[in-house]
Amino acid sequence: MFNLKKYRKRSPWILHYNAGSCNGCDIEILASLSPKYDLERFGIINTGNPKQSDIFLVTGPVTYRSRERLIELYIQMPEPKVVVAVGSCSCTGGVFRGMYNVEDGVDRYIPVDVYISGCATSPELIIDGLVKGLEILEKKTKSMEKPSKLFKDTTSREGIVSRRESALRVGEERDEEN
């Protein structure tokens, strides 16, 4: 019979949520729908409806108030789905890392499959990331995934790993050895 999995790659519908970004990446997502880059040639439609979407584009470092809505949207999306973190601040927190109302990256709450760096990222990179996301989408099963950070890293404070803190920790260990 038909192999239905190959069609996933050809018609990914996207859902976009801004979890506290500076708009820079959002307007670049809008720009990549524009005639010059034209995402529709990959079959991509911006549906805006979680129930009919396959790819979840998240921008922003996840502020305290938007995290609830972020998880809600993720759960509303039917499997199989791919989450793409767009921009430095949604990958790791970027320049907002460590501010009091910011949660340092999307992967603390939902499992992220593709990380697109750049501040602000460009339509070119968004296309690159989506192409990579499509490869992952084809291999996905219909089981629900768990976010990597929230459950794995229990040693650090509240599950957040500060780069600087962990780097210092490495330094201390070395001092003790000497």
Binding site: C91, T92, G93, D104, G105, D107, R108, P111, V112, D113, V114, Y115, I116, S117, G118, T121, E124, L125, D128, G129, K132, I136, S148, K149, V161, R163, S166, A167
Partner: peptide
């Protein structure tokens, strides 16, 4: 050069 695209295995938000 263009910045890289990461996947889940890269653990970009990890320790270093």
């Amino acid at each position: 050069k263009k910045p890289p695209i990461g996947v889940k295995e890269d653990e970009v938000n990890g320790v270093l």
